[in-house]
Design a protein around this nucleic acid. Sequence first.
DNA 1: CAGAACGTTCAATTGCGATTGAACAAATAA
DNA 2: TTATTTGTTCAATCGCAATTGAACGTTCTG
Lengths: 163, 163
Amino acid sequence: MAENLPSCRREFVETAGRLCQRLGLPRSTGQIYGLLYLSAQPLSLDDISGLLSLSKASASTGTRQLLTWQALKQVWVPGDRRDHFEAIGDLRELLRTGYENFFRPKLERSVTKMDQLLANLEADRKSGALSKEDHAFCKARLAHMATLQSRVTKLLPIAEKFF
Amino acid sequence: MAENLPSCRREFVETAGRLCQRLGLPRSTGQIYGLLYLSAQPLSLDDISGLLSLSKASASTGTRQLLTWQALKQVWVPGDRRDHFEAIGDLRELLRTGYENFFRPKLERSVTKMDQLLANLEADRKSGALSKEDHAFCKARLAHMATLQSRVTKLLPIAEKFF
DNA sequence: CAGAACGTTCAATTGCGATTGAACAAATAA
DNA sequence: TTATTTGTTCAATCGCAATTGAACGTTCTG
């Protein structure tokens, strides 16, 4: 990490990096967004890799990823043919699209997965792999899980409106 | 993974394992809970490591972790001096304590972190590390983030009641 | 045109944390 | 008592994905 960053930015970059790391995303991605979030001027790939001590490759893949998430935008800086990047500051929107692209598909898949599981359960019952008691037990537990699932599905749109 | 598991349990175990993996938790942890969630009878450490093809060590650490999360309970099986484990089926409660122990502390820390950042910002301003414009820009962005933070803080208790 | 600047791609490396095997301690049995 | 069973701890290993360096294609410049 470069020493020439003001301490507040340095700390912010570190925090953003760690946050991404916890979310299972590349740390560099968070660092890049964090750096740009507190940069009044757009930065080039060289600036980014230099300030964060990242390789050119990481800066490139990271910015491209962030672009697909609509977390950054490219801006043209007159007199410089390099790409420059700016953070899109609207975190609310970022959160919303993040939910849309990230959570929601998984939630939907989990519902179809539950159907598969229930189908398998019946198949196991018929094939004799599961006793009557085990069948009933599993069915009850899966049903309980399904109700929770539907609650989450109902909650999230509400939360979305809350923002 | 053992072949002697009925297909519905096998698939459930796999799904639970992957879910934990995505959440940044050990996969084995999810597998163990998944196995027990669909087991009408409590299982011993040997059963668990056998059915899941895990080492004794993994089964031990995994169950202990799950116990601290109140996701399992130990039950005594007469005539067997080994520990046996049962899944606690109330997923709602599990979710609630998970939020309490896992998310909430981080959310609280993020608030104090924000204070630190704002303090650093002022320090940088006074030391001349940040121009007046940069200072204003960063302050605005951090303020925006702080409002989002407080919204999340307000939302979560509401979501909790929803369940 | 040649040469440089810029960004991307991809195989190789690295780092991190889950998993393991072996040694250990505690409890039970013989 | 000694031997066996049971569960934990910890250093070593392994797997996975982030990161890198080098080679590449493209676009600009002189």
